[in-house]
Amino acid sequence: MIKPIALTAGAIVAACLAGCAATPEQVAEQKAQTQREFAQTIGNRKPVRTEDCINPSLIEGPQIVGDKYVVYRESGRRYWVSEIDHCPALAPLNSLIVELHGSQLCRNDQFRVLEPGASIPSAYCRFNRFTAYERPDTAGE
């Protein structure tokens, strides 16, 4: 005979949260994976300068790398990277809905993230400054 188990609402919530919480090892592995993906995306490019704004008509993208980086490509030789402080929905294969105010894409411009198959985007997130990454042989062009 199977006996039913009575659980309080608090016990159910605690069990759900315990099952959803990432361990420190999982968090460290996720950070390491993001850094590996970022290094693979950037290749041998090095950071050369940081700008508050970039010209969206000269760039392709965005590409989301891990849960931290938004990468735009400029003519394939220069990459512009904004390291996002906190945007829980940021993940590869998601789409960005960017709100441009004016002719430049700038630090503090807002965007929302749309997951595949979803119809409601995330809460607003903000871009940080954009760092230019260039190959050593083209730096300074």
Score class of each variant (00 low, 15 high):
residue 90 L to Y: 03
residue 136 P to G: 02
residue 107 R to H: 08
residue 136 P to A: 04
residue 65 V to G: 08
residue 17 L to M: 14
residue 70 V to T: 01
residue 63 Q to P: 08
residue 55 N to Q: 10
residue 23 T to Y: 03
residue 135 R to D: 13
residue 24 P to N: 09
residue 110 Q to G: 13
residue 99 E to A: 15
residue 127 F to Y: 03
residue 10 G to S: 05
residue 12 I to Q: 05
residue 4 P to G: 04
residue 41 T to Y: 09
residue 65 V to Q: 02
residue 54 I to G: 00
residue 64 I to E: 03
residue 31 K to E: 10
residue 136 P to Q: 01
residue 4 P to Y: 00
residue 70 V to A: 02
residue 41 T to W: 06
residue 104 Q to T: 13
residue 82 S to V: 02
residue 79 Y to Q: 13
residue 9 A to M: 13
residue 74 E to T: 08
residue 118 A to M: 11
residue 102 G to R: 04
residue 105 L to G: 00
residue 96 L to D: 03
residue 65 V to W: 02
residue 43 G to F: 04
residue 44 N to Y: 08
residue 20 C to W: 15
residue 19 G to T: 10
residue 83 E to K: 07
residue 83 E to S: 09
residue 135 R to T: 14
residue 99 E to Q: 12
residue 63 Q to L: 13
residue 32 A to M: 06
residue 58 L to C: 11
residue 120 I to D: 09
residue 59 I to F: 04
residue 121 P to C: 05
residue 101 H to S: 15
residue 66 G to V: 07
residue 70 V to S: 04
residue 60 E to Y: 07
residue 127 F to S: 02
residue 52 D to G: 11
residue 95 S to A: 12
residue 32 A to D: 04
residue 35 Q to D: 11
residue 107 R to C: 12
residue 53 C to I: 05
residue 123 A to T: 11
residue 73 R to M: 07
residue 137 D to V: 12
residue 50 T to Y: 02
residue 55 N to L: 12
residue 65 V to F: 03
residue 58 L to I: 14
residue 5 I to D: 11
residue 22 A to M: 07
residue 136 P to C: 04
residue 9 A to W: 09
residue 71 V to K: 01
residue 94 N to Y: 01
residue 18 A to L: 14
residue 34 T to G: 09
residue 129 R to L: 11
residue 8 T to I: 07
residue 51 E to N: 06
residue 73 R to H: 09
residue 108 N to Y: 12
residue 11 A to P: 10
residue 24 P to T: 09
residue 72 Y to E: 01
residue 140 G to R: 06
residue 14 A to W: 02
residue 113 V to M: 04
residue 20 C to M: 15
residue 82 S to D: 00
residue 13 V to I: 14
residue 135 R to I: 14
residue 87 C to V: 05
residue 132 A to Y: 07
residue 19 G to K: 09
